[in-house]
Amino acid sequence: MTRRVLIVDDEPNIVTSLEFIMRRSGFETAVARDGDQALEEVERFDPDLVLLDTMMPRRDGYEVCQTLRAQGRTDLRIVMLTAKGRETEVAKGLAVGADSYVTKPFSTRDLVALVRELLPEEGP
């Protein structure tokens, strides 16, 4: 079964690149441009993992993460993408229930490795 990854970011170029990388790595993808869309896509697309930007219009990444966890989606893996490399941002992300975080700009290979690690193969 193909794993699903939801990409949430308001930067079109970043979304384009992430989409390509994730597909190339064998994941099914969907895209959301802001926090509200992200919540809708999670309902519709039912991803296994979300790549979630922190700085977005409407709802920011932390709020989205918090909402998802509050909805009881504990099996959903969440990776926060942050352009602000400060310790507090990282701590804040983990505190609201993210599984991991990645600082922009990131190595595409490392990101794919991280995603694979969080989504181990379960059978065929």
Binding site: E11, N13, I14, S17, L18, F20, I21, R24, M55, A83, K84, G85, T103, K104, P105, F106, S107, T108, R109
Partner: peptide, 22 residues
Amino acid sequence: VTHELRTPLTSIRAFSEILLDN
């Protein structure tokens, strides 16, 4: 400023690596 610098850098690096790897 860090944020504003990192954001384009992220795209640049990602596309560059895609081109490099593919």
